[in-house]
Design a protein around this nucleic acid. Structure first.
Lengths: 219, 219
DNA sequence: ACTGTAATGTAATCTACATTACGTTCATCG
DNA sequence: CGATGAACGTAATGTAGATTACATTACAGT
């Protein structure tokens, strides 16, 4: 029975599943909007349902509790956000250009409204959900930093940079690029930087990094 | 009547005031402990009173509301924390030494449990209390950065550093020193650094900064 | 001692949810 | 068609906590 008419079963099941999946997504979208915008405590599940359509009962059926919905939401957002870092592949370019591009990517990603809202939530609810911070850091900043460190190492091996502690250098690079903008944004302060100021800041950060890690001329 | 026996009036008034003041302080201390430790939402005013002694009525009489108590508490903490930066005065020392000392001060201050708890609260309740972030940044990081910028300028004028944008350089210095430790701490992740690692990190930050801003030899 | 004022303790009020229960609707499947 | 189970909507239920009201007490100034 399970094997014979897969097609029929599949269509019906995919219909059912996709319906359920659609509800699920709708709830997650609504929850994202409300949680990220108003915070955990200030968002009621009735609000979420009012915004997503569907019923409270379904929400409880799917997520079990407010905390369950929240955790699912934040972990999903973490994956999305940190996934956006993966596409680097700048092996042929010269170091300055590669670092500039990486710096822009990093800056834009970390200061995107979504990422800011997520980190704000993680900080705000860190007492109740300590797992979230660990998860976020492991999948985001830490793996990103490791990638940067690896890149720096490879360039150091070719003599294009002077790096003795790749991990420290990577931290240094990220810190220079991000400055205190992330913290300011997390605090809710408007980070007002037009494109020109942003470009100037990033260029300065990269130049500082390069100057500090320039290979010795006489060696 | 007002002028004649000031002393008597004063003693009685100071007694009364100091009593009131004592209550006030007790409440603020208890509130600090609970708010900083458990967060705004998770702390009830009954908890505060239970911890401070006195009565709920007095609390309301003095602070008007939960939000009022919170604001008073956080602004007070901001003043205390940021006040601790003021004593620099390192004019005779050489640049490296002065920067090292400043870096240590900055690092210890920003990562002190109190400062971490305060910034965590500011971030968590930023939606409800946007003033707090502005106040904190104005009195803390911004004025601190300005002082660093001024110092760097003065050394640049003497040719001991190459600085074209003092404010940018100050941001750079602070970012290098703090790394992402502040954000990690705010997220509740344990920042495990023994004294040696800390010293190494700070030394590396200062060296990086100096290398990037060394005055040109051939000029 | 007498009075007004500030401080206390207790308990009532009110509101806002999280969570659960239940009766209804609707589509899918046999 | 009739049954099964998901999804729905609504309305309890229960709790927690902010805020207020009130009756009582301590105490300074006369």
């Amino acid at each position: 029975m399970e094997e014979s008419d897969l097609s029929v079963i599949e269509t019906s099941q995919t219909n059912a599943l996709s319906k359920r999946e659609a509800r699920r997504q709708a709830i997650l979208v609504a929850a994202a909007k409300l949680f990220l915008e108003k915070g955990y405590g200030a968002t009621s599940l009735s609000d979420v349902v009012a915004c997503s359509g569907g019923s409270l009962s379904t929400l409880y059926d799917m997520f079990g509790s407010k905390a369950g919905l929240f955790k699912e939401l934040v972990t999903g957002r973490c994956r999305e956000i940190t996934g956006a870092l993966a596409e680097a592949e700048a092996d042929g370019k010269d170091v300055r250009r590669a670092l500039m591009e990486q710096a822009h990517r990093l800056f834009d990603l970390v200061l995107s409204p979504d990422a800011v809202a997520v980190i704000r939530l993680i900080i705000a609810e860190g007492q109740q959900f300590p797992e979230l911070a660990e998860l976020f850091y492991a999948s985001g900043p830490d793996s990103g930093r490791a990638r940067v460190a690896e890149y720096l190492s490879s360039r150091a091996r070719r003599g294009e940079l002077a790096i003795d502690d790749p991990d420290g250098a990577a931290r240094c690079f990220c810190s220079l690029v991000l400055g205190d903008f992330q913290m300011r944004a997390a605090c809710g302060l408007a980070v007002r930087l037009d494109e020109q100021e942003k470009a100037r800041h990033i260029a300065a950060a990269v130049e500082t990094f390069l100057k500090a890690h320039a290979p010795e001329r006489s060696a």
